[in-house]
Design a protein around this nucleic acid. Structure first.
Length: 265
DNA sequence: GCTATTTGACCAAC
DNA sequence: GTTGGTCAAATAGC
């Protein structure tokens, strides 16, 4: 894999995100067009990066997709049962209809020992963009109503709302958070290799902080980030450390980062 | 007419 | 043999 290309792509995204943050802070409605353009750049850069990672890390799995062989023989109901390693669950008081993606219902099933039937959804862009994301929604309690949504796979479609990057901006200009998902097969970077990480935060060593991750504190699209987890792309993802990351990143400028990765022009 | 949902059938996994 | 995930024809809604 061309690591330099990956780094450059990530850097472009970071640069655009930084500009976006500045513009957003100005809160000038006339800047909306600029905001949209910058947002597009951010999404494109990170999507490209994730594609590069995916194409190198996941392709052997895709080639074994049983559903492809099923299409060849035109058989119905041919599939492999979901593996638990790619799923992400969420319990909420309402079914996650508006979770930032466009879903299409493709099935409903009565589940043994379950009081309510389970609904099956796939991404609307499954066929036009080969997006493999699916989710299952099941009511688990009547009063108060509770629904469990289980997400499988991650979105590869170009749906603007389905970005795999999180730019969380709150009232404080320095609190913009950038969340990335890295392959856990990479060696965890040391502080020397990656200065914006705190000394205690090599990616594989930080203790997760589940208390930070609640539906009250995280914007709805955070779920989309979470559901994007791939077994090779996320287990030590930085979402557990976003406070550390964002505060550390805010102390550096883009030139510092370029130098660390030897990307000076 | 187009798109989304419903629902019975199919079949691999268990 | 049973269960659960998916397909696809039929149907509904716009």
């Amino acid at each position: 894999m061309d690591q330099r290309k990956v780094l450059e792509e990530l850097l472009r995204g970071y640069e655009s995100a930084t500009k976006l943050r500045v513009v957003m802070n100005e809160k000038d409605e006339s800047e909306i067009r600029t905001l949209q353009s910058l947002a597009k750049n951010v999404l494109r850069s990170f999507t490209n990066t994730l594609f590069l990672l995916d194409s190198h890390l996941l392709s052997p799995i895709k080639s074994e997709d049983s559903q492809e062989s099923c299409k060849t023989f035109n058989r119905r109901g041919c599939y492999k049962r979901k593996r638990s390693t790619q799923e992400w669950e969420k319990v909420s008081e309402a079914p996650s209809v508006d979770d930032g993606h466009h879903w299409r219902k493709y099935g409903q099933k009565d589940i043994l020992k379950a009081k309510y039937s389970r609904n099956y959804y796939r991404c609307t862009h499954k066929y036009d963009q080969n997006c493999q994301a699916t989710k299952q929604v099941q009511r688990i309690q009547e009063n108060p109503p509770l629904y469990k949504t289980t997400y499988f796979g991650h979105h590869t479609c170009n749906d603007l709302l389905s970005s795999e990057i999180i730019l969380h901006s709150n009232d404080s200009p320095s609190d913009t958070s950038i969340l990335l998902s890295f392959n856990n097969s990479f060696p965890a970077p040391t502080k020397q290799e990656c200065p914006f990480l705190s000394s205690s935060s090599s990616l594989s060593s930080i203790n997760p902080s589940p208390s930070l991750i609640t539906e009250e504190t995280i914007p709805s699209f955070y779920d989309d980030y979470m559901l994007s987890s791939e077994p090779t792309l996320n287990d030590y993802s930085m979402h557990n450390h976003w406070d550390d990351m964002s505060s550390a990143l805010s102390d550096f400028d883009i030139d510092d980062i370029k130098r660390w990765f030897d990307l000076d022009d």
